[in-house]
Amino acid sequence: MDNWLPTLTTATPGEGYDLAIKLARMSVKKTQGDAAVRDRLRPDYAENADSLIAVSAVIATHFATIAAANAYWSASR
């Protein structure tokens, strides 16, 4: 099994945000495993404001999880 996510620990909030985006993208990839279908659907959501707002909410949820796992990056300071 591919271990693409060995930890939620990140050095900075920026790295945490990048990880949150990766989590959102991997969720789509694992949910819809057919790359051709993802490619065909992409134009539909890429220009849909509701879809873009929804993905922002998903990323925010992932970011909150990562921030909690990192104790808001304050434990090491």
Rank of each mutant, 00 (worst) to 15 (best):
V58C: 06
T12D: 02
T31R: 13
R42D: 11
A64L: 13
A49K: 11
A64V: 10
F63H: 05
A54I: 06
I53P: 02
Y17L: 13
D50S: 10
I66V: 11
T12I: 06
A20S: 04
A49E: 15
E15D: 09
S76Y: 08
D34H: 00
A75C: 06
Q32F: 14
A54F: 09
A64F: 06
W4Y: 08
S76W: 10
I66F: 06
A71H: 14
N3V: 08
T12L: 00
A49S: 11
V28R: 07
K30Y: 14
P6T: 08
A64W: 00
V37N: 01
P13I: 02
S76H: 12
D50I: 06
R38D: 09
A35E: 15
N48M: 08
V58E: 08
L41I: 14
T61G: 08
G16E: 00
Y45T: 11
Q32R: 10
Y45K: 08
E15W: 03
L23N: 02
I21D: 05
L41M: 14
V58Y: 03
K29R: 14
R77P: 01
A60W: 01
Q32K: 10
T61F: 06
V55T: 14
M26V: 13
T10G: 05
A11V: 01
L41H: 05
E47T: 14
L8Y: 02
D50K: 08
M1E: 13
D50M: 04
L52I: 12
S27E: 13
V58G: 03
T9L: 09
S74N: 13
K22Y: 09
E15T: 03
T10V: 04
S56E: 15
E47D: 13
K22R: 15
R25P: 02
S51C: 13
I66H: 03
D34Y: 04
F63I: 04
P43M: 08
Y17T: 03
H62P: 00
S27K: 10
T10P: 01
M26S: 09
S51D: 11
R25D: 15
L19N: 01
Q32C: 12
T12S: 02
A75I: 12
Y45L: 07
S51Y: 07
A24L: 03
I53T: 13
E15R: 05
Y45R: 06
